[in-house]
Amino acid sequence: MEILEYARPRNMDEAFRLIRERRGTAIGGAAWLRTNTKIMTLGVDLAGLGLEYIREAGGCIEIGAMTTYRELETSPLLKSRFGSLFDATVSHVVGIQLRNIITVGGTVAGRYGFSDLNTTLCALGAKVVFYPGQTLALADFIEKGAGGPFLLEKILLPASMKAAYQQMRISENDFPIINTTSAWTGSGWRIAVGSRPAATRLCRRAMAFLGDEPRPSDEKIASASQIAADELQFGSDIRASAEYRREILPALVRRALVEVRG
């Protein structure tokens, strides 16, 4: 990607003005700029704005937009609240050197189809906070976008949740063929599927089918897993056909649900 002008704002107000009034584009990790052929008129670098944090506040976990994958992977707070979920979700992404660059905000803002992280965040019921204060459910943002220029500030997660991530790749470090995360919220199930290869979607019919039963039977889990595959649309690309993805998905959903149920 070619960047015609580069700006490093000193605070969030300045960054927001550059994005809204001068049609600037926020730069997160910038790891994919290399392989993008577009021209960015004004790149607004979000580094140095204090958006690198994982903390507990107001009964939620807040993750700043410039937090890296490596920070997610090694966070003691996330490990204490979600077990090995974040490690399992992001540790397949190339190598540590790239995970020290890629940011949560860049991944979420890009709504990338191949994302591992967006799948897990959707299953956890994450919310996206845009500066100066608008909040959207991540699943809605991924489906519909923000409806105009935006500055992503942070992600909100519930304080803790039991969830499990499953994926299939042709080889380690490649993009996933398909991925899924299941979570028990305490009052219901959430199932998200990504890399279809289109962006992450919730499996609402499968979630409704499981209802509020915290320990569904193996048979019920198997049925829910098939419903998930039946309710989603899949596409074909260089990694797999739509049919293959549809065949594989139920096994992954079942494994994730069983892992959470115990």
Binding site: L33, Q97, I101
Partner: peptide, 19 residues
């Protein structure tokens, strides 16, 4: 192309020079 930036290994081919 690995280099350390502030002590952390990063891919310099994917790291914005201006940053």
């Amino acid at each position: 192309c690995t280099v350390l930036v502030d002590g952390k290994p990063v891919l310099s081919c994917s790291y914005l020079a201006a940053r």
